[in-house]
Design a protein around this nucleic acid. Sequence first.
DNA 1: GGCTCTCGAATTTTT
DNA 2: TTCGAGAGCC
Length: 708
Amino acid sequence: MIDFKKELNPAQYEAATNPHGPVLVIAGAGSGKTRTIVYRLAWLVEQGIPPESILLMTFTRKAAQEMLTRTEQILGRPLTGTNGGTFHSFAFSILRQNAAEIGFPNGFTLMDRGDCEDVIREVKSNFGFGQKDRSYPKKATLLDMVTKSRNKEVSIDFLLNSEAFHLACYGQEMQQIAEGYTIYKKQHGLMDYDDLLFYLEELLAKDEFLRNSLRSRFQYIMVDEYQDTNLVQARIVQHLAGKDGNIMAVGDDAQSIYSFRGADVTNILKFPDIFDNVKIVRLEQNYRSTQPILDITNAILDGAANKFDKKLFTEKTWGKKPQLMIPLSDFSQSTRILDRIIELQKKHGPEEVAVLFRAGYQSYGLEVALKRLGVSYKKYGGLKFNEAAHIKDVLSFLRLIENPADIIAWQRCLGHIKGVGPKTAQKIANTVISGDIKAIEKYIKKYSLLKDILADIDGLREKRSSPSTSLEVIIPLYTPILVATYPDDYPRREAGIDQLLQIANNYTDLDNFLADMCLDPDQHQEEKTQENLVTLSTIHSAKGLEWKAVIIIDLVEDRFPSRKSMHKPLEYEEERRLLYVACTRAKEELILSAPASLYRKNSDFNEPAVPSPFIRELDNYLFDELHESYSGGMNKQQVAAVPSFEAEPSYTASSGPRKITNPQKLGHCNHKIFGRGKIIEKVDPNKLKINFPGFGVKVIVEDFVELL
DNA sequence: GGCTCTCGAATTTTT
DNA sequence: TTCGAGAGCC
């Protein structure tokens, strides 16, 4: 038996052992949220609840797996039958069994982001939109708007007016594209990520029998990261749980970082209104981080426009102050960070170090440096394995085995034939679907490769072969295409296809394999990597994880917060929460890095960079500041070495919160001694505040610089 | 209809 | 610099 009272604090205990009815757990960062869920699971099982009547909804499948594994550990026995996963994977499993009922009698194929963009392009060109207009929104933008309007459940016009006003004149056509997109998907048996949720809702709403059977099957429901659910997800939860069900929602409004995809914090706020007799439990004691780290994270939230009523506390009052590193450039940042990784791995263990960043591409420099030194790493976020062109190519063949109506896949497969583009591919596909043997023969005569492709696909469909067997047929067919298309790097891509074959070995069902490649593309990559590696991760993918030492890079304007969010208050605030999430991942050491300049591909110059406003507004007693010297070392609080006019020590933030300015508008200038610099703001009538890479911020009389 | 060349725009986060 | 879309030629 587990001594729950001893293992949990009173609030955690209350949440974990609540016998009946809805519970809302407001769990601050590092407050033992996962622990509470895990003990909740264990408690339910010890009370004699069958594990298969528990449904655990998380944001990634990785999180669900981890919770189930930890529960098994403390229970000391396997937990069979518990359903754990993401909303999307849950939706897929229900929908594939009830496809006909929602208008997909022949089943459906799940599309990833790239497929959706292809459909959008197709629809757009069918309408003939944007043919002469070079500034017409791109397919990616169009898809963004279509899916955002769905996820936020607002009209396209409303969306454009509120957050993309420059596109408002395209509203009418976008609306048509959105409708055409919906029709196209239905006609060809395709679904995107949003469809999984909306069709599930539709099914639950109209099929009372199914709804009741799911309700009686899942007596206990837990939803993690509730602040990141969107409206339709919240309604799905209501359908599944009923008004007074045994539902436990866990979340933290300060960690809401997915509003760009329609997540709505009000879900958490309205939870007590929607369900009856909600018990609210607050977890406020932080068990993860030391006090100096919490001081800085609390300060970051303090700057929020709509303040969070939250002050985390810890008993770990000891600990090192966080450090702010100012490398000379983003290029040298990689080397300096590499030094720190090695040092921190020695101190805390190789697994306990992570480098976090805003966007996937920001780790490229560091990845090159790591590879050069032969240091292995694991990376989360950024480009996905299954987004590589050659992987998508191979998967398209498999998709045609499942779903012959999948025109997008036909276009990918047949596009490799010389002289066949999207239009011809579509014609051939339609001929094949209609079964007009004579017409097919004609095409085969014209395009010799077509014969093999069709024969393989037909053969595999008839035999209903396993995913790996099918791949073994497809790979020899595809390899010549691969070699011809990518003459310089096909060996690397071949290795990727081998890896895909490894993954396929774990599946018996082609349907599930294809869906998982969209729903959870990374899981097997992770298995493949060994333990004991430093982690590189986007902040979004780092949610819910923790390390002893965390390094956050590229904390400069335009990169973090991203340029696009600078002038949109809501997005700007989300960036702040994102930084909050990043910093609260650290248990013992936190290092922030704000390079003084950024390399721009299109100019030979390193452009000066301004530290993120979130950093600038922090009081300087919260962290130690280190500057990179020209010899490559890091010096504490180094002041510019060159005699200067009114030199300011770089960004010590001594003056408290500073005004957010818009450096783009002020432009750049040249100075005889400091060289090229970025103008930050105008001070006095004739003085400028200028950031010179390597020298720091200076205030200089305008006449001494040459404006560029 | 497909392929290639040229010119213009632009650069997040994820299921 | 790179990507993507359009125009014009095959």
